[in-house]
Structures are given as structure tokens and as C-alpha cells.
């Protein structure tokens, strides 16, 4: 079911190459900010404002780099946001074609179950907190596994290597402590 690493690596490498050949390197985590901002701006239209030469925001993060994020949140039909929407469709399609995720693994994956039991609530709380930490970290770092590590190392960016060092340096000990069984 899972592609062998040679086939899978070739396919993933080609996708990363096509992205940079045709448009720009792949990245995902910024779109969490964009989705937040779309919702925030829908609730409070003062958040993002149009200026003579673009967009700005009352939020310093959205206003940075000449309102780059403010602009994308005001115009959700942009490349990077649509990319993530399409990613959802692609993953859902692939999962459907291979028969989906086993019912027993949908809420609590096997490795987690072997170490922490089968309570979905415990798993949901853990992934919620983990999600918070992951996205806070990704925004502090200015990118995530796809943007910093894969796209970054592919382009020989210094930042990509620093990110990979920080991410694996923390992730490996954490996983070795947490997942002793399975």
C-alpha cells in the first residue's frame, strides 16, 4: 500500500522539482495564518485594510513584508492558498483509491495505541496541543517541514539545514522517549 522508498522518493522529488520549475518552492504552514486571517477579517473587517499600493493590517505580523500576508488573506484565490486546498483533494483522492484508513486507526493510530491506550479523547487532546506547538514553532521558524526542510535543503538554503537540525534534534529524542513499544 505504501510506496517503496525508491518509487516514493522519486515521485516526491519530481513534485518538488515541478513546483520550483513552474512556480515556486512548496510551503504549507503560512496558510494556517492566512486561514486564521480570513476568518478574523470576516468577523472584524478592520483587521485588513487596503492602502494606496496594496494591503496592510492592524496586526503587526500580517502587516510585515509590505502586507504580504494581509494581501493573500484579502484575496484567498491565490496560488499558495489554492495549493493547500488542492492538497486536500489530492490526499483525499489517493486515500479513497487505496481504500482509506483502517477504521481502528482513524481516531487513535496503532503506535499511539500500543503506548498510550485506545482512548480517543486522550489522543485528540494530545494532537490538539501538538498542533498548537507545531504551528507556533513553524511560524517562529518562518516555515515547516515542507517549506524549510524539503524546499530549503533542496535549494541549499542555510536556513533549511538549521531548521532540520532543530526539528530532528527535538523530534528524535521525544519519539524515543514516548514510543518505546511498537
Amino acid at each position: 500500500m505504501t510506496l517503496n522508498w525508491k518509487t516514493g522518493g522519486l515521485a516526491l522529488g519530481l513534485v518538488f522539482f515541478l513546483a520550483v520549475l513552474l512556480v515556486k518552492p512548496i510551503g504549507v504552514s503560512t496558510q494556517f495564518v492566512i486561514l486564521d486571517s480570513i476568518v478574523w477579517n470576516a468577523v472584524d473587517s478592520e483587521v485588513i485594510t487596503k492602502t494606496a499600493d496594496g494591503y496592510t493590517s492592524s496586526n503587526a505580523y500580517l502587516a510585515k513584508s509590505n502586507g504580504k500576508y494581509a494581501k493573500n488573506a484579502a484575496n484567498p484565490l491565490n496560488y499558495s492558498f489554492l495549493f493547500v486546498v488542492a492538497m486536500v483533494i489530492g490526499a483525499a483522492g489517493s486515500s479513497f483509491l487505496r481504500g482509506g484508513v483502517a477504521k481502528t486507526d482513524r481516531s487513535v493510530p496503532e503506535l499511539w495505541r500500543a503506548n498510550f491506550g485506545d482512548s480517543p479523547v486522550r489522543r485528540y487532546i494530545a494532537t490538539f496541543i501538538a498542533g498548537f506547538v507545531v504551528l507556533y514553532g513553524a511560524r517562529l521558524a518562518g516555515g515547516c517541514t515542507s517549506g524549510h526542510m524539503m524546499s530549503g535543503m533542496m535549494q541549499t538554503s542555510l536556513s533549511g539545514y538549521i531548521f532540520a537540525l532543530g526539528a530532528f534534534g527535538a523530534a528524535i529524542p521525544t519519539a524515543m522517549i514516548l514510543f518505546k513499544r511498537g
Binding site: V28, V134, G137, C144
Partner: peptide, 19 residues
Amino acid sequence: VFVGGALLGVGWAVSGYCP
């Protein structure tokens, strides 16, 4: 980048997910 990467790493290990 390093500090944020490390934070991401902890959450990545706990959940098995990155963004």
C-alpha cells in the same frame, strides 16, 4: 529557525503530523 524547528519537532513527534 532553530528554536521554532525544535518546537515543531516536539509536536511532530507527539502527534505524528507536521502542517
